[in-house]
Design a protein around this nucleic acid. Structure first.
Lengths: 124, 124
DNA sequence: GAGTAATTGCAAACCATTTGCAATTGTTGG
DNA sequence: CCAACAATTGCAAATGGTTTGCAATTACTC
């Protein structure tokens, strides 16, 4: 399996797409559509950011993760997990060590794990 | 720790609240606010169903789980997990065998695991 | 560099969820 | 059992994130 690319997937390499991808590649932390749009200085249209995110997710370049309140997108070699501090919202990555390939006779199982807790600072 | 109840938590035992609770107790499967409202024959106002769900969740009687597309509420002795068929949306319960109490120095860690796959029928 | 299809920006549309408020209801004390 | 009061509901309007139609623009191919 070759490296996934926008062009390789048959889509145009446009400014909004590149900008979104660059931003997500920066620190690999999950971000909301709106946060991404703002980080890009509202340079593009919010709708275009949404469209870019959908496309990037569809071709497998980025992943998304949904909490009760927000929907996040992140770039990673492969899906891993995140732990979010309930108090200060700090997010850290958590490697995935799970194998859920066999669950209840289901096949092609994929999973999303969402962890919340109190980070060391907020725990005091 | 006593059994959690609506009255015990200091709230009124009203029709919408009881109806929602009854419905969720029926099969313990996760359901969306709208589905609950429809199952109740639209007998109550959708807003009241939302308010009932928020309250029940707040006092710890029900739990919620969010996918990319939907937000579900379910009643259970304790949070467990669900696997959803990507194709027919069938949902089954999956017991929880994980201990995430210690993750990256975070404390009070709670987790939500979301599994998707193809159920035996849809796999053919 | 021109031609063409894909993509963007914008504004309007959508849709789930929330909210303000007057009317109704559950609960408590008498 | 009833009155009194605060909590809760129903309704309709507001909100807010996300999506969509469409004309204008852009990326890619030859």
């Amino acid at each position: 399996m070759d490296k996934i690319t926008i062009k390789g997937a048959g889509f145009k390499l446009t400014k909004p797409r590149l900008a979104v991808l660059d931003l997500l590649a920066h620190d690999h932390l999950p971000k909301t559509a709106r946060a991404i749009w703002q980080s890009l200085g509202s340079r593009f249209n919010l709708a275009s950011v949404y469209r870019a995110l959908h496309l990037l997710e569809k071709i497998g370049l980025i992943f998304q993760e949904t909490t009760a309140k927000e929907k996040y997108y992140y770039l990673a070699k492969q899906p891993h997990h995140h732990i979010i501090c309930r108090r200060c919202q700090k997010i850290e990555c958590v490697p995935c060590h799970h194998d859920f390939s066999k669950v209840k006779n289901f096949t092609d199982v994929s999973h999303q794990l969402l962890l919340t807790g109190l980070c060391p600072k907020c725990n005091k």
